[in-house]
Amino acid sequence: MIVKRDKLTFWERLYLPALVGGFQVTWRHFSRTLFRGKAVTMEYPEQKWVVPPGYRGAPYLVKDQEDRTKCVSCQLCEFVCPPKAIRITPPGPTGAPGSGNVEKGPKEFEINMLRCIFCGFCQEVCPEEAIFLMKDYSLTGTNRQEMIYNKEKLLSLGGIHQDKIQKWKHKADEAKAQDVFPVPPAK
């Protein structure tokens, strides 16, 4: 395809007026920033962008209002994670001692933040509402090892999630009302 180019006018061919026009814009912003303090850019990292609700930042683990680690080590997120950033060590036969009818929790839970692409699949797949993409978008570290967040770190960054359903507590209460719990613990 041939694109027909319009002929430049005399004024345009002079070239200098355009240069001056451009320089005027630069000058206008420069003086606005300098004398009237109206910057259009942000002084990152001193100033940080406040992300809108629903933003998908780094995934962290949460506890419920009763201080129970919500993750039960079902490993669905490990399976679904496209870049294989998640690595979970299941608890083995002892399960999660003291967790009552939940029976199970992760022995170790690692997310490699260098691999994570903040896709949110882990949050979406989690049947326990135990992992959420939060607002952190800029994670730094001085080496690769530091960027693999372990369970302790993920939980401390994730904080408390107000669980409205509390299904395990509900199940335990319902069973207690039927006089079945406490069950004989597995030996």
Partner: peptide, 17 residues
């Protein structure tokens, strides 16, 4: 209705839960 609850984590034998 509430579900019927039954024994869980029963130690059925040396190798079975």
């Amino acid at each position: 209705e509430p579900k019927v609850h039954k024994p869980k984590q029963v130690d059925l034998g040396p190798r079975i839960v």
